[in-house]
Structure formats: structure tokens, C-alpha cells
Lab assay of single mutants.
Amino acid sequence: MDVFMKGLSKAKEGVVAAAEKTKQGVAEAAGKTKEGVLYVGSKTKEGVVHGVATVAEKTKEQVTNVGGAVVTGVTAVAQKTVEGAGSIAAATGFVKKDQLGKNEEGAPQEGILEDMPVDPDNEAYEMPSEEGYQDYEPEA
């Protein structure tokens, strides 16, 4: 019985440690998101679009440190934060509304985080759909 109880105690310690790591990862992701939003706020009209992409990228980098179902929630929060940063930029006159959601080359930025393969159960990952990809044929 002692062996059984000791095993359960060790398992509990492992769960607590994993929860603490997840909590730490979420806190880091939130900190990076805040950094990115402050970065966007300090940019001029020309830099705002690039700044919004930076927020998304920093958040995406930190999301990889967070495991399990938390990833889905962090990704949703990050996307809403990026959308909010863009709205703030438009409201303050840093950028025109028609410039939001495009990178410096004018290509749409939507789907940055949505296409990231995420499995809350950590069982399997699927690649994003290939609808947006084109076949590449090298020139002879």
C-alpha cells in the first residue's frame, strides 16, 4: 500500500510541476504579447503594419512553449490582441483601416495563427491545408 501511495504522490508532483510550467509559459506569452502591443503603439504610420505582424510573430513563438489545451486559448487571445492593436492603430490615425491585415508588401496577414497546427491532446499534428499553395516548377 505504501508503494501505491508513494507512486500516487510522485504522479501528483509531476502534474503540479507540469501545471506550473504551463502557467509560466502562458505568463511569458502574455508578456511578449504586451511587449508587441507597446511596440505597435510606438510606431509611426509606416511601421504600424509591420508592428502588428511582430506582435503576432512574438506571440506565436511563445505559444510553442505552452502545451496542451492552453495553446488553443493563448492563440485565440493573441489573435484578438493583434486585431485590437490594429483597431487602436486605425482609431489613433497611425494607419488607414484599409491597410490593416496586410503586410508591407500588401499581402493579407489573416491566418497567421489560424494555420498553425495545434492539437490540445498532444496526440497528432496535421499540416495546414494546401489550398493556398501553388506547385513550383523550376525553369529549365
Rank of each mutant, 00 (worst) to 15 (best):
G25L: 10
F4S: 00
Q62W: 09
G51I: 15
G73Y: 01
G36V: 11
D119Q: 14
G25F: 14
A76R: 07
G73H: 10
S42W: 15
N65K: 10
P117K: 05
A91R: 02
L8Y: 09
G73K: 13
L8K: 00
E20M: 06
D2S: 05
V15K: 00
E131S: 11
T44H: 03
K45N: 02
A107I: 08
V26Q: 00
V71N: 04
G51T: 10
E35N: 11
Q62M: 13
A19E: 00
V82M: 03
K60F: 04
K6T: 03
A90K: 10
A85L: 15
T81W: 14
A11I: 14
Q24A: 01
K12R: 03
V52T: 00
D2P: 01
K80A: 07
S87V: 04
M127Q: 06
L113Y: 08
F94W: 11
V82A: 03
G67S: 10
K80M: 10
E123V: 12
K80L: 10
G106I: 06
S129I: 03
P117G: 07
P138N: 13
E137G: 10
E137D: 07
A90N: 09
K45R: 15
E83T: 13
Q109S: 05
A124C: 10
A19R: 04
V48F: 08
G93I: 11
Q79E: 06
P108C: 04
G93Q: 07
L100C: 09
G106H: 11
N65Y: 04
A30H: 00
A17D: 05
N103F: 11
Y125T: 13
E104P: 14
M127K: 12
V66T: 04
K96D: 07
K80F: 15
N65T: 13
N65V: 11
D2I: 10
A89T: 09
E114R: 08
E57S: 03
S87M: 10
E20G: 05
L100R: 01
V48A: 04
Q109K: 08
G68E: 02
A140W: 12
A85M: 12
A29I: 14
S87W: 02
K97V: 13
E57V: 10
Q24T: 07
G132Q: 15
G106E: 10
T59L: 05
T92K: 09
K21Q: 09
Y133K: 03
V66H: 04
P117A: 04
A30T: 07
G86L: 11
K10W: 06
E61R: 02
Q109F: 04
K6A: 09
K6D: 05
S129L: 13
Q109N: 10
V16S: 06
G41F: 13
I88T: 05
L100V: 06
G67V: 07
D135C: 12
E57T: 10
V49K: 12
V82E: 03
K10H: 09
E110S: 03
E130V: 03
E110P: 03
K97G: 11
E110F: 07
A19T: 04
K58E: 04
G86K: 10
K34I: 05
N122I: 08
T22N: 01
V118R: 03
V66Q: 02
A91N: 07
A76L: 13
Y136Q: 13
I88V: 06
Q99N: 07
D115K: 14
Y125H: 13
V55L: 08
E105H: 13
G47D: 03
K21N: 02
M5G: 02
N122W: 02
K96N: 10
G93K: 06
A56S: 08
T64N: 05
K43T: 06
T64K: 14
E46D: 05
G14E: 04
Y136W: 12
Y133A: 11
E139F: 10
